[in-house]
Design a protein around this nucleic acid. Structure first.
Lengths: 132, 132
DNA sequence: TTACACAATGTTATATTATAACAATTAACA
DNA sequence: TGTTAATTGTTATAATATAACATTGTGTAA
């Protein structure tokens, strides 16, 4: 079988919803919102999420157990993600900064170990919240 | 009340155990192992963990839902952590690289937002696993 | 030294997040 | 068209984490 080019039914339903809400969303919230589409059980959501993460269509915000659509059309950075998270309003943005990406991609630890994959989550106050 | 200088009983029990095992460990595993010390419920462990994270004695590995003792004696970087994680054996090391820290501490996004706190998790194969 | 405030504890119950196990169905392709 | 792998459906349960509330300990100031 060739590498998957089209999404399966459940994968498409879940992705459509995640792209529609356009902000990080949790698995069970997705479940509640796609039940009208015929998805009934958590596993159906988690299986779709696993696949979508794997192919880079979405990312997981680890510190929040939430999922968000990838904004980078090519999805080439699916395994190397950077997010900013507002600790007040919980707004999350995906950061795509070529200099930072390059720096991290080339980083080696003291033993010379290199990393093809990383996840960086920055925390602070977004513009709105910092003026409150 | 002055800022806490000594740990409470439960906090000390949990920290002692985490320092002893010297590798990332999960909350319920901690619970099972400190029951002989009189800690009976998950909440007692989670409360201790929360405080220990807050004061920088331990860190949470978000992608693994696990906790590990901070190796930096001063714990000043408690809110700015970098880990390398082996995807094969799950070995985790805390990376302390002053150049990287400085780079991340000074990073600003395109809107000029700065971050006092971050968590970076690198994934790859450790030396042992990469020769297998 | 007592009384106030706050931190920490103990306890039960429950919420939230995620996976195991197994049967059935669908889709690509040799 | 038969084979193989991916996907689905379903029930149950595991793993992670917090709510709520009563109680006890501890530092500090009146």
């Amino acid at each position: 079988m060739l590498k998957q080019e089209t999404l399966s039914k459940n994968q498409q339903i879940v992705l459509d919803y995640i792209e529609k809400v356009n902000e990080p969303i949790k698995a069970y919230s997705i479940l509640h919102n796609v039940q009208k589409k015929g998805i009934k059980a958590p596993l159906q959501v988690y299986r779709a999420l696993d696949k979508l993460v794997e192919i880079g269509k979405i990312h997981k915000i680890e510190s929040r157990n939430a999922f968000v659509a990838c904004k980078n059309s090519n999805c080439q950075i699916s395994k190397a993600t950077v997010f900013s998270i507002c600790e007040s309003c919980e707004e999350v943005s995906e950061i795509s900064d070529s200099k930072l990406s390059k720096y991290l991609k080339n980083f080696q630890d003291k033993a010379g170990m290199k990393f093809n994959k990383y996840n960086l989550e920055f925390f602070g106050l977004c513009k709105k919240c910092s003026v409150k």
